[in-house]
Amino acid sequence: MGYNKIVCGVTCSEASARAAARAAHLAKEHGAELIYLNVVDSTFLKGITVSSRPHHAEDALLHFGDHCLQYALEIANVLGVDARTTTRRGRVYIVIREFILEEGADLLVIGHEQRTFFERFLLNGEVEKHAERLRQETGVDVIVVE
């Protein structure tokens, strides 16, 4: 099956770097357009007692995001793939879903660090669950890179 447009969600983690590389490989293989997406999600601050307003956290996260996207671009460039980058704000799941639909992408690649058996048991494989939901709601293929 061929892909025309690939979206890769990135953070600064090693798993994310692997995902960025995998997405670049796939883009090259299929001649697809590649977009690296970073989501600034400060919703975890909701309800924190004595905290600064969320915009301070968002500024910091935007700063990270630029680094992560830059890093992903470097990976793509090394592999000889042209990619573009974008940053969006909001809840990660919702933003990714909307972005995929907006861009008409047909593949989503995300990185996720390996978890221990205990963590998988405790967290009930949350990322896998979200990936499955995204598949169902958008109709695109989703690859989770560990």
């Binding site: 990135v10 600064c12 975890f44 992560c68």
Partner: peptide
Amino acid sequence: ASANVVTVGMAERAGYHISFM
């Protein structure tokens, strides 16, 4: 502590997961 939640949240968003355990 709120500072812990902020630290974990920020680290998570940057791609570094710290689980509860």
